[in-house]
C-alpha cells in the first residue's frame, strides 16, 4: 500500500474494533499505532485500511492475529540491569522488612522474559517461595510463549549480557537448556506464577499488590489513557507499595502524581504514600 494512512482511517478502524470486539485502541499513541497498522497492512498485503477493516468485520478469528501484531512485544531478560540490581538490593528487602511475603504484578509481561528475570532474582535471594506473582497481557499468544518459557537461542546473547551486568550470582545458562535452536527455561522457576489475559484499558481492579511492574507498556498509550491506567494501578497497590515503569517513562506529569513519591528517579521507582 503506497498511500499514507490518515488519522480518520485509524478512527474508523478503532471504531469498528470497539463495536465488534469491545477492545478500545482509540487512546493508543498515534505515532506507533499508525506504524503498527501500516505494518499489518504490508504483512497481509491489504490494499487499504478499508480492506483491513472489512477483514476484521467479516472474520472474527482474524482479530486475534491482529491483536497480536498490533501490540509491540519486543522484550528482554534483565532489561536495564541497574534497575534489577535496585530491586534486589533495596526494594525487595524493604518490602520484606514488614511482610513475610511479597505480591507482584507484571502488567504487560509480553513473552515473559521480565517474569523469568524476577523469578531468577527471587530464587537467588532465596525468597522465590515467598512471592505471589501474577503476570498479565492483552495478547494471548505472548502469554502462551511466556508459559512455555521457550525463546530463540539468538535472543539469549543479549539476555546473558544483561544478566552479567545485573551481577547475578550464577551464570544464566544454569537456568535453561538448549534444544533445536531454542532456549528452554527451567519451568520450576514459574511454577507458582499465574499468567493471565488482562486488558489494562477496560479492566477493573482485581487484586492488591506490594509491587507492580508496568514497563514499556504505557508508552503505547496517550496521556489520557495513561492517567486512567495509573489510577487503576494506584488502587491496585497496598499503601506503601511500589509502582515501577520503564526507564524513560515518568509519573510526574500524571494526575495522581501527588499520591506517590519518587524512590528512585533513574530507575523510575515510585511508592504509593496516599490512598
Amino acid at each position: 500500500m503506497q498511500q499514507e494512512i490518515e488519522i480518520v482511517d485509524l478512527r474508523r478502524l478503532t471504531e469498528v474494533i470497539k463495536n465488534k470486539y469491545n477492545y478500545d485502541f482509540s487512546n493508543y499513541a498515534m505515532s506507533s499505532f499508525k506504524r503498527r497498522v501500516q505494518r499489518i497492512i504490508e504483512l497481509y498485503k491489504f490494499a487499504s485500511v478499508d480492506a483491513l477493516i472489512r477483514k476484521l468485520s467479516e472474520e472474527p478469528p482474524f482479530f486475534r492475529e491482529f491483536l497480536s501484531e498490533v501490540t509491540v512485544n519486543v522484550t528482554e531478560m534483565f532489561r536495564d540491569p541497574s534497575f534489577w540490581r535496585e530491586i534486589r538490593d533495596h526494594i525487595l528487602p524493604n518490602i520484606l522488612l514488614n511482610h513475610s511475603s511479597v505480591s507482584i504484578w507484571h502488567a504487560g509481561c509480553s513473552s515473559g522474559e521480565e517474569v523469568f528475570s524476577m523469578a531468577i532474582l527471587l530464587k537467588e535471594m532465596g525468597i522465590l517461595d515467598k512471592a505471589k506473582i501474577v503476570a498479565t497481557d492483552i495478547d494471548v499468544d505472548v502469554l502462551q510463549k511466556a508459559r512455555s518459557g521457550t525463546y530463540p537461542l539468538k535472543n539469549m546473547d543479549i539476555n546473558q549480557k544483561n544478566y552479567v551486568r545485573f551481577q547475578g550470582n550464577q551464570s544464566l545458562d544454569r537456568y535453561y537448556r538448549e534444544e533445536n535452536g531454542k532456549a528452554i527455561l527451567d519451568k520450576s522457576l514459574v511454577e507458582g506464577i499465574s499468567f493471565r489475559e488482562h486488558n489494562l484499558v477496560s479492566s477493573a481492579v482485581f487484586s492488591k499488590f506490594d509491587l507492580i511492574l508496568c514497563r514499556n507498556v504505557m508508552i503505547y498509550f496517550n496521556q489520557n489513557l495513561q492517567n486512567t491506567v495509573l489510577k487503576m494501578f494506584h488502587e491496585s497497590l497496598f499503601k506503601y507499595g511500589y509502582l515501577i515503569v520503564g526507564s524513560k517513562e515518568s509519573l510526574i506529569w500524571c494526575e495522581i502524581a501527588n499520591k506517590f513519591i519518587v524512590v528512585n528517579n533513574e530507575e523510575k521507582i515510585y511508592k504509593k504514600i496516599k490512598d
Binding site: 499513541a29 505515532s31 506507533s32 509491540v72 514499556n216 503505547y220
Partner: peptide, 10 residues
Amino acid sequence: LGNTFALSTE
C-alpha cells in the same frame, strides 16, 4: 501529534 514525544521499543 500535539507536539509531544512518544517512545517505542518496536
